[in-house]
Amino acid sequence: MTRGPLFHEQTARQRIAAVVDRGSFDELLPPPERLTSPYLAQLGIPVSFDDGVVIGRARIGGKKVYLAAQVGQFVGGAVGEIHGAKLTGLFKAAARDRVPCVLIVESGGVRLHEGSAGEIAIAETMRAIFECRALKVPTIAVIGTDIGAYGGIGILSTCCDFRVMTEHGRLGISGPIVIEKWMGKKAYDSSNRALVWKTSGGKTKYLLGDAEALVHDDAGAVREAIGKLLAKSSPVTLKNVKARQKDLEKRLKRFGKTGDPDDVWKGMGVRDVARASLASGPEFAAMAKAGRR
């Protein structure tokens, strides 16, 4: 069996090409427009033609989508003024045209070099995401890389209807190094990869119900998961937010006292933690499901 690069190894443009119907991607504000960051230029830091996010429209399984992919290699995929405005515009276009919007996330949050402009852009994009949701236009965040979804982009990802994760993906707000500095190495050793992934990785997020799908580290699997969610939405209704409130209260009550992710895994139906740690995303999901029966 031959296989292409893993999803987490691909660049943003490769991910897009591999996830959408062949040749269907039509980039908006493409590189020849040269919309590059004046902040970085002033600071003597290299700029990029897409400012770290590739946006456009495409088809997935024949269905129209708007699509964005963040470029993790470029300043950590962090959101500056242009990057953020591209995202806001894309979600607004999705709402206007009633076309689902997919964000392939790879970002540590706000681009510090651009100060508060990136922070406001994330807030504006959140508003645009909820515009989509009010119209039952599906919004999907795909989180499948080590850089993952952190800071404001971690919060933004949770504003979407759905999250598709791989076992490589991480979702959170404060990164492990920040927490280690704050709490001390005893409380959180950021070099302990197993602990870091059990804290913020796709498996734990899926178990808790914060990701709707946990799939192989492969663009084909991501594409399939997106395809299944394109016809669904998770509207913001009183019934839904009340159910979510209950669920989050229960989670906090049940696990709030423990600092050990293994307790969460066991509590959520994972019987053999050691084996589950080594399992692929889908295997893990199946194990948890079997354990809950």
Binding site: L171, L238, F255, V264
Partner: peptide, 26 residues
Amino acid sequence: GQEPNRADEMLGLASYFGHLLGCLEL
């Protein structure tokens, strides 16, 4: 800010924040 706290992160701090935003949107 959000307290950099491993237990909160593990239980989904981002999701708790997202939920608060969802309530405000409603």
